[in-house]
């Protein structure tokens, strides 16, 4: 059971939140111009990172805000929590989202 520090509410139990996969995926501006393979890549392909993963969470049973979490998938340690639209902190910059 994670303890997640919601950027708007503070530390709360995992059961209040819902995970929503990899962060920093950008919806293509012109989907019609993409090939089937490129579109499938956006749609289905994820890193399945073993290590530090930047992912999205929503405080479903709280403020209902979405935010980003940097989590080590090997230990489930939450290294950083940051707002939507913000970049990952500089010490995590080398991680390819």
């Amino acid at each position: 059971m994670f303890l997640i520090n919601c950027p708007y509410c503070g530390p709360r139990e995992e059961s209040e939140f819902h995970p929503a996969g990899e962060a920093h995926l950008k919806r293509p501006a012109n989907p019609e111009k993409l090939s089937d393979i490129e579109w499938a890549d956006y749609l289905f392909m994820r890193q399945n990172t073993k290590g530090i993963l930047l992912e999205r969470w929503v405080h479903r049973h709280g403020c209902r805000r979405w935010f980003n979490v940097a989590r080590d998938t090997r230990t489930n340690k939450v290294l950083h929590v940051y707002q939507m639209g913000d970049s990952p902190p500089t010490q995590l910059k080398h991680i390819k989202p």
Partner: peptide, 13 residues
């Protein structure tokens, strides 16, 4: 509602 919020908050803020 969560679907609308997801797009509004993450893709089209």
């Amino acid at each position: 509602l969560e679907w609308l919020e997801e797009w509004l908050q993450t893709e089209w803020p």
